[in-house]
Design a protein around this nucleic acid. Structure first.
Lengths: 219, 219
DNA sequence: CTAAATATAATAATCGATTTTACGACAACA
DNA sequence: TGTTGTCGTAAAATCGATTATTATATTTAG
């Protein structure tokens, strides 16, 4: 038996898109810098056409800004932009969570418990941050998954990527991190208990606290 | 005095993106059809590279769907998709209108009046539909413009394009059209009167009625 | 006759090279 | 000194051709 190839016949452009998206969100690019296309060609070992196609997608997605005739730039870290992103996350994820709690079935409950458990067990040691981040993203997306709106989920993902770019640039705050981790468990409890109002309030508080940590990247 | 050239040195890819976005929203492509890249090359009189870059952006934007190794397709018209889009429009534009009414200044009031007036005066004769559509879009975007969130406006634009694709495919309903047109004026009144609740309720009703018209494209 | 296997045609994706545009240094002029 | 204009270089955008993949037609085995 052979493993079905990781992404069935992914195209070069898609692979570059995924890789760059990951690298942008995780702060591997300096905010505000101009993207050196020829440099990226070597960095990702690809040709110009698929690379440019990936850059175009990333710009449409909002992780790059495109200026006609003068290439692509990594967006600056801007306090007001972060305010906007965090505020929209509160609104949209709050809305999505309410709906998810109303719609979510037993299967969702199981997956949510599983996602929370995996996240709690994952360690946050410097070498495994990426893995932790992935589980964290997975947890939050599981939480709102059954909200019933594809577009809402799409917007939330997009905002999450924007937000994480700031958060990953910011210095960690262990004390707050501890609170945030605890809130993940509490969120699961409230969600399973179908306490719509309390769950939403907690999620909004969770985002608010994360926001305060993320602010550290704007100074 | 010379008119600053319409789009200062826009790139070929951007021009194609704009043109195709317009054509997709206005139903110049058959829903569900596979995009014949070589055909488009002739249709828009451009080479392959800028065309593909435009297609990639449109896919990231949601007006095309991209399937690795098998090109691009025009999304199908799907009843549930329309439900989702309309529902999200109600939520997000409602939210944006509330904020806009709280933030909007005198300049906004003027622009809103102007936009509403231009729309009312525009005729809807078959040859000038495009012009009317443009004024209509302009009106709705002016209405929510001072909501204070760039991301909210971005999502609203995106949803508007999605929605209009359905509406423009649907047969017109003159009786409803008349009501909708009247509502534009009422929206201005309520907005200028800073009646947040009533304005939001009316906007949501407005979207609901448009939705019922747009439904005609799914049968 | 049906279904799997193979060959063929169509088209998507990518590459390498060319053309076009912007940016910075320097010179000419006010 | 400050402004404007020109040139050279670097980079972005585009083109034309090639390669890889999928879809279609045809063959062949059961």
């Amino acid at each position: 038996m052979d493993v079905p190839q990781r992404k069935q016949s992914a195209t070069t452009a898609s692979r570059v898109f995924d890789a760059m998206r990951h690298d942008l969100v995780n702060g591997r690019f300096t905010a505000g810098e101009k993207v050196a296309i020829n440099g990226l060609k070597e960095q990702y070992q690809v040709g110009l056409s698929p690379l440019r196609e990936a850059l175009n997608r990333l710009a449409a997605y909002g992780l790059l800004v495109q200026e006609n005739q003068r290439g692509f730039r990594v967006p600056r870290l801007d306090r007001r932009e972060l305010d906007d992103v965090a505020g929209m996350r509160r609104e949209l994820e709050g809305m999505a969570l309410e709906r998810a709690i109303l719609n979510g079935d037993a299967e969702w409950e199981s997956e949510l418990l599983a996602a929370a458990h995996r996240l709690k067990r994952a360690d946050l040691s410097p070498t495994k941050v990426d893995e932790w981040e992935q589980l964290h993203t997975r947890f939050h997306s599981t939480l709102v998954a059954p909200c019933g709106s594809v577009w809402l989920l799409r917007f939330i993902d997009q905002l999450h990527d924007q937000f994480d770019r700031y958060r990953r640039m910011a210095p960690g705050v262990p004390a707050v991190r501890k609170i945030l981790d605890a809130q993940h468990g509490e969120l699961v409890e409230l969600a399973l208990g179908r306490d719509v109002k309390a769950a939403r309030a907690l999620l909004e508080d969770h985002i608010e606290r994360s926001y305060e940590v993320a602010l550290g990247s704007c100074k």
